[in-house]
Amino acid sequence: MLEITNIQKTFNKGTINEKPALCGVSLHLKPGDFVTIIGGNGAGKSTTLNAIAGVWPVDDGSIIIDGENITGYPEYKRAQFLGRVFQDPMTGTAATMEIGENLALAARRGQSRGLRWGITRAEKEQYHEMLKVLDLGLEDRMSSKVGLLSGGQRQALTLLMASLKKPKLLLLDEHTAALDPKTAAKVLDLTNSIVNKNKLTAMMVTHNMKDAIRMGNRLVMMHEGQIIYDIEGEEKSKLHVSDLLAKFEEVSGGKFANDRMMLA
């Protein structure tokens, strides 16, 4: 489903702030793979997701989704293949537009937008049913502006939007990091159910090692712009947080995992 081969990215090339962010990342996802990505700050987790989403072009390497080479596609053009949920709940939705309108925008991902109605009556009924499943009471507030929703509600809505038009790949960039633990758990449950129900291929960046072990069928650890650990299936489900910490200590040369990883 996703084939990234040896992608490289250096920020601020040729300046004193030069920073190699991705140093030859290769990853091959089978359809239905759900990968969790962990690693310290600056390891290249979010950068990998941004490279796939096309926030900027990569310096080298190729990105192929479902047989189509998208390395040269700009961000908006890659959107047809991708569903994305961001760390900041404000990023994924349009605050001054209605809940229904946001969903309708997502429903047209990858289509050319013409002079047909931005949202139809039939769609409104469909969204009403979909929002009911979230169990957040949003179905009765379809004409409310998204800016009135809480962070958790916005992330739930963004998840729904990301999966509304079945994406080839779902990119979750620490999408629960800004939420309180209870809401985060709820959004993660929702993530699981949406991925399973739609049989999505997904990548989830997280700082929470328990979540990384619990969710998905595959786990990838990154360090200094490289994938240093890739484990799946049976083996992955037997992992413990202590294993990951040991692994992390090993690669970081005895330096301890950062606080966020420790606390998680």
Binding site: M90, M97, L105, L115
Partner: peptide, 27 residues
């Protein structure tokens, strides 16, 4: 016009460019 798909895309662009690009809008 601002109720059509094109018009909605314009409103989304003004409101949240990152979200618009993620939804495939050429801002």
């Amino acid at each position: 016009f601002f109720g059509t798909e094109k018009g909605s895309a314009i409103r989304a662009t003004g409101c949240n460019p990152s979200m618009s690009m993620a939804q495939g809008i050429n801002i």
